[in-house]
Design a protein around this nucleic acid. Structure first.
Lengths: 217, 217
DNA sequence: GCTGCCATACCGACCGTACGGTATGGACGT
DNA sequence: ACGTCCATACCGTACGGTCGGTATGGCAGC
């Protein structure tokens, strides 16, 4: 339990520097135990760095929280940009493929698929505006990546809607975040997948469900 | 599964007994700062009791968390049982009235309308099974109160569904919990109301397609 | 190419305090 | 007289944060 990773002593070790290791440890530990219940010492141990190193890279625990949220935003952006749901030609199919993809990655331990920034913002929204804003940037930034496809789907299908692409994009995140809460409460990932099924059904109904005629404009 | 009933004392009848005051302080403080970031001393100060009194009523901070979740379940059950959304004769109207009611109480400060057990379970699901289960009982117990109306609506409208009343009832809580997460991230209650609008639209679509928005009846 | 110098990265002992929890005893109703 | 309820004083420790220090690598001057 003592030795985890041989510490690279070079200055530019490929993605293996102490700062990154701390951010990864923060990501994993905070997702499991929450921000407040995660101690600096614990993070240092998990990342195999010392406290001196921690406070060299982050001026406070709160700063680590902000950096962790930003790191989360960066890594998830890259992850979803490279995901296969962008393949379909039809924009609505891309949106539905996104939902299916989100559902497909809900597996294994809860802390492996739940959302770091959703977890963090629940507990620190009132006590740390800096962390709250970093979490908001991650969530709403990710939601924004769906807007183009939703807008294109609205246009292509000639839907007349009393809702906007922006609003539906946000709602996907609402359902996903809520699905994680119920999965945690019930300690069952299937509860999260269930929420995604309803989201899929909702989107299909919005874009011409059984009783809806497609009105080509 | 019986729950200890807080008994009134004659000691300081005007303020309620210490146990109840502590539970109310816990409800308010934990909703704002989270469970881990709320200290026992802080709770004692807010409830105007001493630490001796705290540990007389609760054997540990974790036990207080469990009791707070149970207290939340009791008070919210009573609150929703007395709410006006049960009035309509039509079961579907009752379900929609529930959603509208949930939307209507989203106002003011975030900590005034967000869900204690949803907040708590996000941060303690992995470290306190007891609290997690108490939160689960509150969430899923509340969801279950919607099942009868949803089932009746399915029966009455004669729709064939590939989803169950139980599942849709849970989904209402998924959307509500997720709506709170986004509202906290964006620091804006309107984000929560937006989620409820989508939920309303989804339920209407499920029960017979493009019903226009309910005219004020 | 060695030397001196500096910035960055990292180390680990240490500090003040605030934390959860305990021990003990008194007030009060029954 | 006894159990419930509450108050005060206190304890051990784990917390976030500090500080003096070392190791490494880049670079300029010569």
């Amino acid at each position: 339990m003592d030795v985890l990773v041989p510490r690279p002593t070079k200055h530019q070790p490929e993605r293996g520097d102490a700062r990154t290791r701390l951010l990864e440890a923060a990501r994993d530990t905070i997702r499991e135990k929450g921000f407040a219940a995660t101690s600096v010492d614990e993070l240092c141990q998990a990342a195999a760095v010392t406290k001196g190193s921690f406070f060299h890279h982050f001026k406070s625990k709160e700063a680590l929280g902000v950096a962790a949220a930003e790191y989360w935003a960066e890594t998830t952006t890259a992850f979803f940009a490279g995901a296969p749901y962008h393949a379909p030609d039809d924009p609505l199919e891309r949106v539905l493929a996104y939902v299916a993809f989100r559902k497909s990655i809900i597996a294994g331990d809860l802390a492996e698929f739940t959302c770091l920034v959703g977890t963090m913002v629940e507990e620190v929204y009132a006590i740390s505006p800096a962390i709250r804003e970093a979490c908001a940037a991650s969530i709403f930034g990710h939601a924004a990546t769906l807007e183009a496809d939703i807008s294109a789907a609205i246009r292509e299908r000639g839907i007349s809607s009393d809702w906007t692409a922006e609003s539906l994009a946000r709602h996907t995140q609402t359902v996903i975040q809520g699905a994680f809460v119920l999965a945690k409460a019930g300690n069952d990932p299937a509860l999260a997948r269930e929420g995604l099924d309803h989201l899929d059904r909702y989107i299909r109904l919005l874009f011409g469900g059984p009783n809806k005629k497609k009105a080509r404009s």
